[in-house]
Design a protein around this nucleic acid. Structure first.
Lengths: 424, 424
DNA sequence: TACACCTCTGAATCTTCCA
DNA sequence: CTGGAAGATTCAGAGGTGT
């Protein structure tokens, strides 16, 4: 048994250790037990010098159910009256876990089925890519600790709706309240939308420094959210299958005390190290948000509708690549931006495409950009395509020319698109 | 019993009707059964001495479980060998549903736990806002129909790694492959990322036209996705608890046949009406596919960016009016829709514009529509402008011509947009 | 048939390079 | 020198393949 200021780590099966604990002494239990996946998890740590592994092969579902049932029953005893339990489930065991939890804690104490959603790699082509895990949230009683977390309004939300007070009219319809002068009544400050049960938190990235090399490691952010939802400072967090100790690190960072238990010596060792030197990887994605990566903005891409393309987001010189190849290389596309000449755009596209091996590039012209004579200077392989805006604008300009009679103008023959290829 | 061309609707309990159906006659079954949410299973937490058993869950809800089990067994019989079942679950019954489905179809035929995620407004303050529902996806066998759907890469993904082939170096590290000159080797066409099991589909807006007033109505988009994933055109879709018939409408729109069953006369009546309505107003969808049409409709105007226009709602022949006038009348704009020839679009535009006194109309061409020689027949005053999609597509076609040398093609001089106006 | 091993993939970080 | 953008790398799944 190792002792950190406010964190206790035990080595061994959690059942006897739980049995030795005082009733009601824990405010939050988080469990991520080994699952009945019939696979041995195996992963080399970052330095590739050691291997961790644990065996979660249970001879039958019944045996596994009993294993869980015994430990959960003890957990129920040690959790305080206003305490909570979060049970992290493999998708192959959710229903089993739910049934056992209903049995132990009572279905009336089931609060939420939390979906942890993340994006992930895979080359799976037949079937849907699994990108979520489930966390079952139960409380000991109706009177549980819950700290609200507010998130941002959806971009689609009508601001009026948020800012104006509402009332019911004669027929009990919800309407905006008005004062005597008919003005809207402000509704005070708004905190946002209450946290939902679907959590979008990035999966722990293979390159993250936060990684310990221990299998099934969870992101710190996930545990921080759980702990701050269900406990207050000074409360006690229990993790009976603590693995690499993410929950304990999170508890420590949030000024909670914590008790961790694990069967594996490696796990306990790693956890001790992490507690002394907690590393939370600096995630740019989390810092700046997913949106910050988008430089192929939707406006630009909307111009491309009707084309089969893949949007490209992390490259200033390329908005999209076509799904089709050409001469062994990709076909890249850029939409000219406001305030940028056609030639500038073409050079950007050409430069960015060079390293991608593209031999054909399409540039969508939004304006003439002060450069009518670009043909000679245009980088090799760049093909300019007009946007409708440009076509419309130029056509209108043409109609203003003194030598074009207005009456005749409305009878203009349509432009034959074939003329585009006259230069071929 | 009501009969539409390819949709049969039955009134009554589905069990006897299923029993009368032929084995293997259905390719996809979608169920959204009623849930008896009166929380019969309010089990008091037990003493810890007992063992957990699945029988407890079963017997506590015996009546309901039996109800489902009987019907699911029949469903298994009528589903074809390569068929699928999607079971839409109430969150209070997922585990029960999963257990029964495992029993009837076998856990080895469990494919996915689909999370339907939507945003929802609520001021609930204690606890997490439920914003998801679960759909269990099972197949009849290993050899099941599955049509891949591809989605966008994460914005944080960089293009290089998806465009370049990779190999292993001496120490088995993954690195980019290079040819003798040290250039990157392209890795073939890219389609995007396979569809994940978390689906972000907006909940039916309370004001949406789609809404029938029937409770628990699901968005069309959700059903369309399920049907297009698991069936091909002409296949048969079964919905034994069809309610307001969203699945049947979706099946019809996607050229599948469908069988719907419901206990309620109201439900059957509403379904009949909904089925007739889309046939009347959207017969075109049957030819061109719902997806293309919807996208075009939503985004039609996006293609006009860079132009000063006022969007026009609810006018089939006009998408926008330019802020600028011409010859004393407005200038109208229409974007050609998928499945519509250029000439059809031009006539629509011309007809709709006549009453507005427009003397100049712009038609944005998205395809050639089988009509290369439209110039003469084109209504007076209509000017055709090419969409970038069209320009790109035609350019690529040009490059495929036998008389165009590939080597030369990649060095094609850029098209001078001026050439567009040579016919003036 | 079962299983070990090799290949492919892409999210998100780390690293490098360039302006 | 510095900050940001582009490029390189890691590793967990899912397949495929060969024994």
């Amino acid at each position: 048994m190792h002792r950190q200021p406010n964190v206790h780590i035990h080595l061994g099966d959690c059942l006897p250790i739980l049995q030795g604990m005082e009733s009601g002494s824990v405010n939050l239990a988080y469990l991520d037990p080994p699952f009945f996946t019939q696979k041995v998890h195996r992963l080399a740590p970052r330095d590739r010098s050691r291997e961790f592994s644990f065996d979660d092969l249970w001879s039958s579902q019944k045996e596994y159910a009993t294993f869980l049932f015994e430990r959960l029953s003890e957990i129920r005893r040690v959790v305080a009256d206003d305490g909570s339990v979060f049970f992290h489930c493999d998708r192959n065991a959710v229903h089993l876990a739910r049934a056992i939890m209903d049995d132990v804690f009572g279905s009336e104490n089931f609060r939420s089925e939390i979906i942890w959603h993340y994006r992930r790699w895979s080359n799976s082509q037949r079937g849907l890519l699994p990108t979520h895990q489930t966390i079952l949230y139960y409380t000991q009683s109706d009177n549980y600790t819950f700290n609200e977390i507010w998130t941002e309004y959806s971009p689609a939300t009508n601001v009026d709706q948020i800012l104006q007070r509402r009332s019911r009219d004669g027929s009990n319809k919800s309407v905006y309240a008005r004062d005597e002068q008919g003005n809207a009544i402000p509704n005070g400050t708004k905190r946002g939308v209450p946290l939902s049960d679907v959590w979008d938190i990035p999966f722990l990235n293979p390159k993250a420094k936060e990684r310990t090399g221990y299998p099934t490691q969870k992101p710190l952010l996930l545990l921080e959210r759980i702990i701050s939802l269900a406990t207050n400072e000074g409360d006690c967090v229990l993790d009976p299958f603590c693995g690499s100790g993410t929950s304990l690190v999170a508890a420590q960072l949030l000024n909670r005390t914590a008790i961790g238990i694990d069967l594996s010596e490696d796990a306990v060792e790693i956890t001790k190290q992490r507690l002394e030197e907690p590393i939370m990887s600096q995630s740019r994605l989390l810092d700046v948000g997913r949106e910050a990566y988008r430089n192929a903005d939707d406006n630009a891409l909307a111009i491309l509708q009707g084309v089969d393309y893949v949007p490209v987001q992390r490259n200033a010189g390329i908005d999209a690549i076509l799904k089709q190849d050409f001469a062994g290389g990709p076909i890249t596309v850029l939409v000219q931006r406001p305030g940028e000449t056609l030639l500038e755009a073409a050079r950007k596209l050409s430069k960015a495409s060079a390293s991608k091996g593209a031999k054909l590039m399409f540039l969508i012209a939004m304006s003439r950009g002060g450069c009518f004579d670009f043909a000679e200077e245009l980088p090799t392989g760049v093909v300019v395509i007009e946007s409708p805006a440009l076509g419309i604008r130029e056509h209108l300009d043409k109609l203003k020319r003194p030598d074009v009679l207005l009456e005749k103008a409305s009878y203009l023959p349509p432009v034959k698109p074939e003329s585009l290829f006259e230069t071929l």
